[in-house]
């Protein structure tokens, strides 16, 4: 029983990390239809930004988060302006272009910062565990869970309760018509891409105290992010949240029942089955394209 409770928490913690990584992608891929294979590298840049701020400026991860968000968003904005913007009519080419950008970012960090794993210290106030009976929860993981829910809520508000969100949804539904109504679709897309990249950067900064910070760290993460977005359904924030909880918990349960290696296989097999019967994911958004 203790094991199951702890494992459910572990699944939730995995889900929160998945959600943080996938949210930016859900917006970029879901809203704009750009298959952004450089997303993992945005996560990596966030991790390195957190490392640089801690090592050279001396501010901890929590305080660094806004700076990380801004700096990675700027990188995303530049990438969108220079490359992605020219490829909206050729969605398949964006795969190749963003893949290339990913490699460039990865090798730049490798050459500039070095290939070895970097050490980022976790925040002192979040060390230790909270224990409720047999359930032992790492404070830092609890914080990531709460934070990811907050980011999800903020993104949801942005999409549904602000003028910017309304414009974005209009552009998603029909770019031509919304431009007729005076919405500057180009600008909306740039901001959306930058926002998605910034979210990826925050995710990267948040996982540094748990994972190893290396130039290739994004490669595996982008796969997980795509799984979440595809299972959740394109463009659906609620779908992404549900899918990350589903995948996180399934990974946790399978890994305790079988083991981590077979558990991973079981999760992937489950996703294939799910896609077979719900090809548009759990919560597909109804839009005309």
């Amino acid at each position: 029983m203790d094991v199951i409770a702890n494992q459910l928490f572990a699944g939730l913690s995995m889900a929160s990390i998945l959600l943080m990584i996938a949210l930016g992608l859900a917006i970029i891929y879901g809203a704009m239809g750009v298959i952004n294979l450089a997303h993992g590298e945005f996560v990596m840049l966030g991790a390195y930004a957190a490392w640089a701020l801690q090592t050279y400026v001396g501010i901890g991860i929590l305080l660094a988060l806004p700076f990380v968000f801004i700096s990675v968003a700027v990188v995303g904005w530049i990438v969108e302006k220079v490359v992605v913007q020219n490829l909206y009519h050729r969605p398949l080419d964006t795969i190749l272009a963003t893949w290339g950008i990913g490699i460039i970012l990865q090798q730049t960090v490798r050459l500039g910062v070095g290939a070895e794993s970097r050490f980022v210290k976790g925040p002192d106030i979040l060390t230790g565990n909270t224990e409720i009976g047999p359930l032992i929860m790492s404070n830092y993981r609890l914080f990531v869970i709460v934070f990811s829910i907050a980011v999800l809520a903020a993104t949801w508000m942005l999409m549904t309760r602000t003028e910017f969100g309304m414009k974005l949804r209009a552009v998603i539904q029909n770019r031509g018509i919304s431009e007729c109504y005076g919405i500057e679709a180009k600008r909306i897309y740039s901001i959306t891409f930058a926002y998605g990249a910034g979210l990826a950067g925050i995710a990267g900064a948040l996982i540094t105290p748990l994972f190893s910070t290396i130039p290739t760290m994004g490669t595996g993460l982008v796969v997980d992010a795509f799984l979440v977005v595809i299972v959740g359904g394109l463009g659906s924030l609620i779908g992404s949240a549900a899918a990350s909880v589903l995948i996180g918990e399934a990974t946790a349960i399978f890994s305790i029942v079988i083991n981590d290696t077979l558990g991973r296989i079981a999760v992937l097999a489950g996703i294939i089955l799910l896609i077979r019967f719900r090809p548009r994911g759990l919560f597909p958004t109804e839009t005309r394209r």
Partner: peptide, 30 residues
């Protein structure tokens, strides 16, 4: 665990439940 595996929360839960005396590790790199 697979090479490059990075989330050890299940492993740690299992260690906590089993209460072994020694963790004999041959985990490599990252």
């Amino acid at each position: 665990v697979p090479l490059g595996h990075s989330d050890f929360s299940s492993v740690i839960n299992r260690i906590r439940a089993e209460k072994p005396d020694v963790i004999f590790a041959t985990v490599v790199g990252d």
